[in-house]
Computed example of a mutant assay.
Amino acid sequence: MRGQLIGTPPSGAGNEPAPATGATPAGTPPTGAAGPVAGATDPHEPDLGHHGDVEATPGLVDLAVNVRRAPMPDWLADPVIAALGDLAAYPDPAPARAAVAARHGRPPEEVLLTAGAAEGFVLIARALRDARRPVVVHPQFTEPEAALRAAGHRVERLLLDPADGFRLDPARVPADADLVMIGNPTNPTSVLHPAAALAALARPGRVLVVDEAFADTTLAPGVEGEPESLAARRDLPGLVVVRSLTKTWGLAGLRIGYLLGEAGLLARFAAAQPLWAVSTPALAAATACASPAAVAAERAIAARLAADRDHLVARLSGLPGVRMAGHPASAFVLIHRPGADGLRERLRERGWAVRRGDTFPGLGPDWLRIAVRDPATTDAFIGVLAEILEA
């Protein structure tokens, strides 16, 4: 397996704009490691601050955002609404913390509730300013690297190879990397890495951050829970699992997520967190979503999602020149079509919003991420996409 290791200088207060990274162009197999790169700002450097919500403007069918849109069930809506009557009191995270801990078989001190997964990345970056060699495995969600650079870190990128299905080879991660960040399943590739491969990255003296924001969307035959999740692993040194409740339950506007890890490590992150960072309604949502009924509902939703994803994959497979990255395992599919620069704009003209790929390190304008939707929406989208490609 191949991958490329490249360096990026930090960005943030007192720093110049982020220099070039020398990232491998999309579709070009990486050829090996490269050292840190310095120099002038590169106009081709991916915009780490670009996210799918920017694509989903009013009037377009939204295939750019991975948040599930469905009516909120009563068991979730009722406690959130009830919490609005208690806003005069400061938030008390203890009940929600205990509920989340029980869900994952951990003591409460191994849970830190956050205002969404994004805040978790910021806390990690700020608390671990002493990290000497942080490495981010790409392509993946850009906020972990953005948070590190904003905190003054010099980040190295390990670019996984599209020719190899963006699969992780643990041996590609430098042995002396003391902070490693990776997503599982990974946004935007939808690749689900084996838990054993991720566990192989853990070692004393290293903090291993695994972003499991989409873990509850995954399913595997014969597996009762979330396949390849490390959320319940307490034996791996330095492991921090980042979780989000905003995707499956449509709570992006409420901002609720949490970190799982060693108590001493989470205490360092908590020291970087503002007081009362998570609102009372968000805490109510966290408690409700940790219940056994909620977990069972997640599994049912994941099963329906898998069927809808299979339908999308089958329809995409019938389009000329379109290929998918690996075997999609989450709520989105990453596609590549050579010469597709401008395809996103033509889809917008026809009323469809998809996520551009060139803002993810390691990808380019030939890559697009498509959210999984119901079969009727998928069929309508494929019809438009086919017409554009034929033209």
Rank of each mutant, 00 (worst) to 15 (best):
F360R: 06
G59V: 09
A329P: 02
I382L: 09
L128S: 08
Y258F: 12
T280Q: 01
E109K: 01
D178T: 10
T246L: 06
A231E: 06
A23K: 02
G250W: 02
V354Q: 01
I382A: 10
D74Y: 04
A117H: 07
G165A: 09
G253E: 05
L60E: 04
P281R: 01
G225T: 12
A271W: 00
V65I: 13
G7E: 09
A202H: 09
A294C: 12
E55K: 00
S330Q: 14
A200M: 04
L251A: 00
R103W: 05
A131F: 08
E55P: 01
V135K: 03
D92I: 00
T218D: 11
D62E: 10
L179M: 10
G383F: 01
R132C: 14
G364N: 03
M1H: 09
W352T: 08
T378R: 05
E345N: 07
A213F: 14
H311E: 14
D178I: 13
L347T: 03
T280F: 02
P71H: 06
A231I: 02
S244F: 02
E345I: 01
G7L: 09
R133G: 00
R68T: 10
G27Q: 06
A40G: 04
H327E: 11
P188D: 09
T28D: 12
P237D: 05
I388T: 05
L60A: 07
Y90I: 10
S244I: 03
E143K: 06
P36C: 03
A294K: 05
I370N: 01
R299A: 15
A151Y: 00
D341T: 15
Y90A: 14
T377M: 15
L60H: 08
L201N: 04
A391I: 08
D211P: 13
A82Q: 01
G120E: 03
L123M: 05
D169L: 02
L347V: 03
P108S: 10
V207R: 11
I256F: 01
P274G: 11
G49E: 07
A303W: 10
G357S: 11
G32V: 10
W367R: 07
R344V: 15
F360G: 05
R355Q: 14
A290W: 00
G342P: 08
A252Q: 11
D130K: 09
I182G: 06
T287K: 00
A300R: 14
V155L: 10
V191K: 03
G351R: 12
G183S: 15
L389P: 09
R68V: 13
Y258G: 01
G12D: 07
I388F: 02
S330Y: 13
A325N: 01
A282G: 00
A288I: 06
L334W: 07
G205M: 11
P95D: 00
V207Y: 05
